[in-house]
Design a protein around this nucleic acid. Sequence first.
DNA 1: AATATAAATTAACACTGTTAATTTATATTT
DNA 2: AAATATAAATTAACAGTGTTAATTTATATT
Lengths: 200, 200
Amino acid sequence: MVSRNRLQSDKENLRQEIMDAAREMFVAEGYANVSMRKIADKIGYSATTIYLYFKDKNDLLHQICEQTFARLAQNIKAIYMLSDNPLEKLRSGLREYIYFGLKHPSQYEIVFITPLPTNVESSFEESNGKIAFDTMRIVITECVSANLLKHNNVELISQTLWAGIHGVTSLLIQHTGFPFVEREILIDSVIDTLISGIKA
Amino acid sequence: MVSRNRLQSDKENLRQEIMDAAREMFVAEGYANVSMRKIADKIGYSATTIYLYFKDKNDLLHQICEQTFARLAQNIKAIYMLSDNPLEKLRSGLREYIYFGLKHPSQYEIVFITPLPTNVESSFEESNGKIAFDTMRIVITECVSANLLKHNNVELISQTLWAGIHGVTSLLIQHTGFPFVEREILIDSVIDTLISGIKA
DNA sequence: AATATAAATTAACACTGTTAATTTATATTT
DNA sequence: AAATATAAATTAACAGTGTTAATTTATATT
């Protein structure tokens, strides 16, 4: 810790260090079980220092989530480059969403499951989670244009699919003790059922 | 004896009185924002009295939820008496699940959305939420027997449908500010997509 | 009326998020 | 190089939390 003051004299470094420590602890112990003091201890600062970089505990949480979901948005966009078949793009996008959620369960929980004290939706409107959703909308528009679907209400289809993939993701994250059928089989079943249900 | 019965019923009364007060406050202000002291104040007792009737705050919460979900189980069972057509029964059951969740959002949240600190699943195994789920399984078995579905994996179909209806229910409960299409239209779309997706 | 039991309370503990006041370190100016 | 201004970090404190143990009050039984 001798060189600590030097290394972190850059404000951005400490900010990121706080986020890294907090993310790790939120994932391991759950948001509610991690106190500002514990985070501070981990990085060798006092609790109140965190308030110099984040408005409050909730703000810290959301900054972390945004970083993560920027990656989801990227991933989905990347996937949409790989194929020309709109329905295959859609299927891959749905898969990516679900597996991304399962890979980052506590952050998925925070963004899409946990009821936020602050005004969530106004922030969701400008969030990376929203960008991921918008990308899905574009692909569905492609499917509609190619006359591949039962009807052409893009918004309705998007929300219906979102409900489906959010449902399986959140169930698998939350009800860890429930005797689910094999994970991949259930995920495939949900995706197949949804696609089959909207196909012309 | 009369006096003894009266005592017992008094005890039951206070127990129920605590649950009623707590439920009302949980619904209005959210579980996390309601303290044991606030509940106690509302009914004119001290906070510690609640611990004579419930193990802890979490236990209190779960007792409340069980009371509510006993009604969901009842409702779904009742619905399954009304029709002979298995697919129609299934459709009605799915609808009831969703609308029940939307009618009791904070309790749905507690049972199916909120990640519980205590071991949830062991209690879910004996819960009324489980009974509702089991009833759905039975109807799906009827559909399979009548050769109405694509395949005959009842467990997989049950969980796939559960994912779908849980998805739309929790989205509508949680993301109140999101610009969803008209609620009934979205719900119908989810149900139609799911049924259409599993039908032979 | 005395005693045993049940019910409810008060006091206390170890926490929590957060704010204000204060100290310590760094940067800028004289 | 010394004095001053600014930024960064800390300590102290507040009002609140869930929960336990010890104690008082009320009820029932002898």
